[in-house]
Amino acid sequence: MSTHSLTKASLRAEGLPRRRAVNRAMELVAWLAAALGVAILGVVVWSVARRGAGALNLDLLTKTPSVAFSLTPVKQGLANAFAGSLVIVGIATLMALPVGILVAIYLNEFARPSVRTAVSLTLDVLNGVPAIVIGIFVYGLLVLGHGQSGFAGSFALACIMLPLVARSTMEVLTLVPMSLREASLALGVPRWRTTLSIVLPQTIGGIVTGTVLAVARVAGETAPLLFVSSLAGTSLSWDPHHALQTVPVAIFELSESADPADHTRAWAAALVLLIFILFSSLGARWLATRTTRRLSTSR
């Protein structure tokens, strides 16, 4: 501190103590904000882990929920929800992935700049449509008059995945060096073949990353499924022609229940969902940095 008084003697600085105090205060606010953000994550994850871990056992994944009035309270699993989530998210991925990649190829390799701008704005708009509105839309399109089904749920989730997959594929496509395309075209390889067998393989890492992130995102989506695939029975079913229970919808319903035993199962299911999402996000991030590094060094 004595050095600071020395400072004042020869270094002129108007109002510095006050300005330095303001700066310190603002820096402190930023530190606290970051600490708060991390703390919120920690508290949420810790709450889920602590409450869910107790109920997390093989029964949760393999047994179906007990029917109402059942006298055997042991069968308290959510196997039907996990099966339903697998089926619905799987089919949604099969729907969204090829279309998303094709959209990205079209925008990046073929479209005129004006078309590109317009369509990518549309994709952003689609990405911004609230999930609950997607649910209403699919309800009106596929459910009204036909009844709920796993397929309808998959379509709803695919609507959410499509812009995510397309966007991430476009991002890696732009990283593929133009010289690579030119080298292939100069050999006389036609453009479609260049695109599919030279350009696209370069982007596999990025596409996988984008897909994993999109799957992680829709695996936790509840709102689009409420109107579309929620009125499901408690028995285990893999048939997407009928409404299927899913993990997020199950958590939603159990969280509204008054029975603490239901809450426990909700925490356990949330823990499984959270573990899946955290691991796939981390894996995807790791893959993304790898792909990006490889593509940008090869340039």
Binding site: S47, R51, G220, T222, S255, H263, A270, L273, I277
Partner: peptide, 24 residues
């Protein structure tokens, strides 16, 4: 790491946040 943590917060499904919101 802090950037990754903040982005992880965004990845938590709303139904889980809601569950935590109502019960905790």
């Amino acid at each position: 790491p802090v950037t990754a943590l903040i982005e992880t917060l965004a990845a938590i499904p709303s139904v889980v946040i809601g569950l935590w919101g109502i019960l905790v």
